[in-house]
Design a protein around this nucleic acid. Sequence first.
RNA 1: GCGCCCGUUGUCUAGGGGCUAUGAUGGAUCCCUGCCACGGAUCCGGCCCGGGUUCGAGUCCCGGCGGGCGCACCA
Length: 509
Amino acid sequence: MTSERDFAETVVGLCKKRGFFWGPSPEIYGGSSGLYDLGPLGKLLKNRLESEIRSSFVRANFWEVECPTVSPEIVWKASGHLEGFVDPITRCTKCGQAYRADNLIEEEVPDADIKGLSLDRLAEKIRELGVKCPACKGQLGPVERFNLMLKTRLGLDQDAYMRPETATTTYLIFKRLLTFFRDKLPAAVFQIGKAYRNEISPRQGILRLREFTQVEAQLFILHKDETDWRAFDDIKSYELPLLPYKIQESGSHEVTTFRVSDALRQGHFKTKAYAWCVNLAYQVFRSMGFRPESLRLRQHLPTERAHYAADAWDVEVQTKSFGWVECCGVHDRGNYDLGRHQQYSKENLSVKDGNESVVPNVLEIAFGVERPLFCHIDNAYAEDSERVWLRFPPHIAPVQVGVFPLMGKPELVGPSQEIYDEVLDSGLTTYLDSTGSIGRRYRRQDEIGTPFCVTVDYDSLRDNTVTVRDRDTMEQVRISRPELVGILLKLVKGKATIAALKEGQPATI
RNA sequence: GCGCCCGUUGUCUAGGGGCUAUGAUGGAUCCCUGCCACGGAUCCGGCCCGGGUUCGAGUCCCGGCGGGCGCACCA
């Protein structure tokens, strides 16, 4: 545990030092917890992750939309967030300790039936059952509501809230989407954008934020299509690392690799469409560059599920800082959301299913970007006796190529500048550095995870070649200038390796 | 929100009433340097914020903000 914490501190220290993230923000005013700034490298990394996420969903036939981050109060009344996205809090009148009223009652009187009680009824219940403050046995005060949404105002007098999830704002445009999809379901849409949660006590740095970037994909689907989902056939033989709730209940946390079709047959997933979504969530995380060994899919225990959810699986990433970190939820939201918005807006949000008019169901994949971002840095961290480096997969590394003259001599700096411009033009994120010793420059790039460094030396001037160095092995290979950009692009895409390029080349560089 | 501990250059850190706040690392400029933190010169940068005690406060006290751990919370 202590070593985990030390590790987290080391990683966070590196992140602050090198410009991945800073905070809590605003630092010069002392900071406000749960708010962080992304530095240049963190923003590059986040952009790379988002672009992988985006192309994964696009490949799965999802279409991207963007909605406002603030919506008027009525939306959140309809969605249930105003009522439901709250904690009923009560305080001890003597010692001031605050408690979740419902949890407290359940704890003290396990048989009490308090599901869905109003705040006043909860307070009544506390009196009735004689529940006292567990800390000092003092009298408990009235039950108050603590809403986790950030409130704001539109114009002079319209109450509004920052969205606590992007999903709801996607549902609000369902009619428009239906037209866009030519009145045919399934319709698959996703959104990447900011969401806000007024966490009571954010902890664990960038893992629990009050403002964060959410990715939420919605599959609008008819009930009959959930069990008969054609795309399932494309992925049925894929293997997934699963931790079903039944295994967890038996006290084990052992992951079993299942073929998707076997997991379905054995009842771990209820429908083909839901299984397909769980697989998609997993593949999105693979596309971000997480290794299979550090990923698992964990099913929620029935007791931890949200009340509306028929089933819930999470994608979790293993870290050295915080153990397994929940990064993504896959939810069957049924037709709760569309049904509520139909009711509150009086708009018809149903579709034709044969002769029937039905409100479609929604399957959702939801995650924040900052968690995978941190997990990636955590997973990438490596050190040995002589250096610290980040082993990012090349395609997500913030800076992809470093370009150096062997020494800061004009005859080497000039060509380096030309190469830098050329590599930059190819779309790769590139950094030119001609100061200090060559070793120091390599180490600087190692520490921010740059996978490849190009060095211009005196042989370069003679035979028009440069060396390319591999971050992880520190090995180098000599490449002819005309081939350089093409090879770098292949290296970054993982379609070539330094080791393979070295084969058949003379040992000297 | 509660309890315990903590807050010193960009990062890591010494110092717990007394002259100009310690060291490492880093960064900048220059010299050196024909491939992995070489060396030399010069320079840059810090006591979280606000009150109080004191002749004098990184240092002691109070409050705020922030962090760690535990509790609670994480729809």
